[in-house]
Design a binder for these strands. Structure first.
Length: 358
DNA sequence: GTCATTTGACCCAG
DNA sequence: CTGGGTCAAATGAC
């Protein structure tokens, strides 16, 4: 869906209203897989409408760039290697960036995790004049893939938005293809190597599977990102926002508590299991005053929940997204935000399995 | 034992 | 010298 830069805000919102109506019609009946994909496409269009509207309200005539096109989340880097600014403008790479790697693009997104790739966090640093730490990630789909991204939560009120900077192109697909070819030469076709099993497994989250091929037929310009489970969760979430009610939790997914938070580090890898902390209270119990440093919301679980995801009660209830601000953990250099705490996050399990740290 | 995350330290450009 | 980016040992979960 292309937006005319001269369009009025009312036109954009009217378009969003129309999309919402179509989505409601879609959600009024049981969804098969195609219906879910269509609903996902609608939800993404709604996200775009929101971002465009916000941009227009802020006086920008150019819509912020959001995830579009292919399901990988990276906008055809091979065709256009110029980096773009937060508003989609072309960015001239700095000398350092030219030497260290090519900035593929920058974007602003409310969901820095859903770009279709699997990322391993390798650094976190407090940035001057920013309320939030910057997070550094490397692609985890292949140990030799050089793609990286930086995630920086924007200051200011309202729903958290994240500046995401992608550096270097993904080579994981090629690397995995070549590795698979090598593996197939080594093993009989009747054996399933761990590597291959991992590749199959991650393909769901890797590029959304067949979704990328289907979506263009649903809405031109819309793309699917993330796994089918993520898509379903987003549809559920969106339905909740639209209807103002909590959808039934019997959708069958996700099956287990897992992570997320406004902390972008907690967004990276959707998966079945939590890692570093649990919802049994072990982390929260470490600091009774944990929530004091940041605006949090409490629910009947006894935990404080990030307000951004409180917009999405259905998904929140299902996924048990958790962030705990702990002001007792102090560092001089890194990992402290200005609120006086840092986020202890629950991290989901990596699903790839086949590829470990570089 | 393995592996992902955390985090103190280091490197380097400006 | 400062700040951003990265490395790698330590840590903890599984």
């Amino acid at each position: 869906m292309a937006y005319d830069p001269d369009a009025k805000l009312s036109d954009v919102l009217a378009g969003g209203y129309d999309i919402n109506n179509r989505l409601q019609a879609l959600l009024s009946r049981p969804l098969d897989s195609r219906g879910q994909e269509a609903a996902m496409a609608f939800s993404q269009e709604l996200s775009r409408v929101f971002l465009v509207s916000l941009s227009m309200l802020n006086g920008n005539s150019v819509a912020p760039e959001v995830r579009t096109g292919n399901s990988s989340g990276v906008s055809t880097p091979a065709k256009d290697k110029r980096a773009r600014s937060d508003n989609g403008e072309v960015v001239t790479p700095t000398k350092k960036s030219r030497e260290e790697g090519l900035i593929i693009r920058k974007e602003i997104t409310p969901s820095p995790h859903t770009d279709g790739y699997q990322w391993r966090k390798y650094g976190q640093k407090k940035i001057q004049n920013c309320n939030f730490s910057r997070y550094y990630f490397k692609c985890n789909r292949h140990r030799r893939c050089e793609a990286k991204k930086k995630v920086q939560q924007q200051d200011g009120g309202g729903p958290p938005m994240f500046d995401v900077t992608y550096v270097n192109e993904h080579t994981c697909d090629e690397l995995r293809a070549s590795d698979d070819a090598a593996a197939s030469r080594m093993a009989s076709p009747w054996t399933t190597s761990r590597h291959h099993a991992g590749a199959v497994d991650t393909a769901r989250g890797g590029d959304g599977g067949g979704l990328s091929g289907l979506l263009p037929h649903i809405i031109a310009g819309s793309g699917g990102g993330g796994s089918a489970e993520e898509n379903e969760a987003m549809v559920s979430c969106l339905a909740t926002v639209i209807s103002g009610s909590v959808p039934p939790s019997s959708s069958g997914w996700p099956p287990a508590p897992e992570a997320s938070a406004s902390d972008p580090a907690a967004f990276v890898l959707p998966g079945p299991a939590a890692r570093s902390a649990s919802v049994d209270g072990s982390v929260a119990a470490d600091d009774g005053a944990a929530a004091a440093a940041t605006m949090m919301m409490a629910d009947d679980t006894g935990f404080s929940w990030d307000p951004w995801w409180s917009m999405c009660p259905g998904e929140e209830a299902a996924r048990h997204q958790l962030v705990i601000m702990n002001p007792n953990h102090h560092r001089d250099d890194m990992h402290m935000d200005d609120a006086g705490g840092f986020a202890d996050t629950v991290w989901p399990e990596h699903t790839c399995g086949a590829w470990r740290r570089a």
